[in-house]
Design a protein around this nucleic acid. Sequence first.
DNA 1: TAAAAATACTCCATAGGTATTTTAT
DNA 2: ATAAAATACCTATGGAGTATTTTTA
Lengths: 303, 303
Amino acid sequence: MTLQELRYVVALADAGHFGHAAEACFVSQSTLSTQIKKLEDYLGVALFDRSLKTVTLTPAGREIVDSARHIIEEANRICEFSKQTRDPMVRSVHLGVIPTLGPYYLPHALPLVHEQFPKLRLLLREEMTPHVLAHLNEGKLDAGLLALPLPDDNPAMETVPLFSEPFFAAVPADHPLAAKQEIHIDELVHAGLFLLEEGHCLRKQALEACQLEGLDNEEIRATSLETLRQMVGMGLGVTLIPALAGMQSHDVGTRVALRPLASPGASRIIGLIWRKRSPVAPTMEALAKFLKNKLPPGTSEQN
Amino acid sequence: MTLQELRYVVALADAGHFGHAAEACFVSQSTLSTQIKKLEDYLGVALFDRSLKTVTLTPAGREIVDSARHIIEEANRICEFSKQTRDPMVRSVHLGVIPTLGPYYLPHALPLVHEQFPKLRLLLREEMTPHVLAHLNEGKLDAGLLALPLPDDNPAMETVPLFSEPFFAAVPADHPLAAKQEIHIDELVHAGLFLLEEGHCLRKQALEACQLEGLDNEEIRATSLETLRQMVGMGLGVTLIPALAGMQSHDVGTRVALRPLASPGASRIIGLIWRKRSPVAPTMEALAKFLKNKLPPGTSEQN
DNA sequence: TAAAAATACTCCATAGGTATTTTAT
DNA sequence: ATAAAATACCTATGGAGTATTTTTA
């Protein structure tokens, strides 16, 4: 039994005439005749009564045409649905975002994305890098927005850098360092540098970016960038803050001063990641390309 | 899009594994792979996510597999229904029967038919020959049970004789003719032969069977065999009655005597008729064959 | 005679097979 | 190294065509 055969049967039931039905199906009369007969033979049931002036359905044929109509209707629904889904930018994407980036980058990025791809539903989830990677592997996430490079280079994953985000020194507003135009790493270390707790990739990135291997003050750590900033404001020490998070603190508090670092290239790379052969791949490629062209202020492009 | 492709998609959705799904469909893994891919290309939508350990449905795939399941279910219903309908003796047949035969033959035939073909539903309709033929042509009847030969020899119709039904003379019990073993036609005519009214084929058949061309007493006619018999019983004249109708009168009334006719072959042929290429043809052929082997008493076979 | 459906015959697209390569574990 | 899926290539079935015959009105 074929979908096509069923279409022919329905057409013939509607037309009551082999020639007209064939025309409606854009095939020759002979093709229609043959296919109808084939289906009748296959089913072992006469569907049409050809002995009357006009070709008529048998009682059995009536039943079967009813079913055939449902089938064809449902098949058309599949085609219709597919046509709507065909655009890679019309779909949902479960996106994991690291906490040191999401609150600062997404307010910039999401409106632009929504304007460009209105049918793209980004279902966001704020998670630290290892969880993003694990959930990606499990299929609980479709893609991740995080800092590169990643610890283990998974060949099944596609990673695309979006931009480079420099680190800034964050010092108390009344601290002597706040008077300088730019600050050296060792000045920060002397002033009591502390960072986020383990687990946040930001910690490692900051250390690497400044070519440090570790810190003395292992006791003082914060659990979020906001806490970190609060602690600096209270004069507990100094820290490194990524540019995007820093931008926002201008408005919020004046008790913390942000200064560029003297050391060049003290920055982290922000990128997208997804499973190479995942169905979201086309979506993510387009999204990455778009985002690379919409750098948030304070960042620079990265290939 | 093919039914087979949809079956493969459903199988793969269930198995989550190309090899296992292929096995379940009794095809090679390569065939399944190719066909799935073909459907995905046709729809322009990825149905499966092959980037995870176990092959998983995409959101779009889930929707489409749902529809595919319905389609396959309905297709199976068609096959199932056909399997039940395949037997030509499992169906309804609209059968037209002439009034001078139905009440006398069917009580004999129907129980036998029902015993042999329990699933055969004979939907009976008592009509005179011209109406049976007209309704056959219009498709309102599937077949007819009537007397042969027919006035116009329609080549689209198949007619099969079942048996030959002799005519009997019916005379009042106290009539002189009742004393004879068998009666000659001319004796009957002299005694005042009258018949059924026009419209009933029986009239013409009786005249032909007795090689008569007409009757004098055009005023006296009956509208049914029962009336006819009543009229004979009242001494209004004599008549011809077909054997099967006569058999029953033995029990009913004793005021009418039945006697065989001297003229040989004074009989009518009872047969079945249906449209040659109608779907009931196989049913009717089998039915005719069966009935020819179950002659009612008082009749003889006829080829 | 004309029109409709069935049939005969041909062609080529493709479902399905085997063998192999690529990819992931 | 193993297993799974994709790919390459081949074959044969059968869908669709044209031309013709059969059948019915």
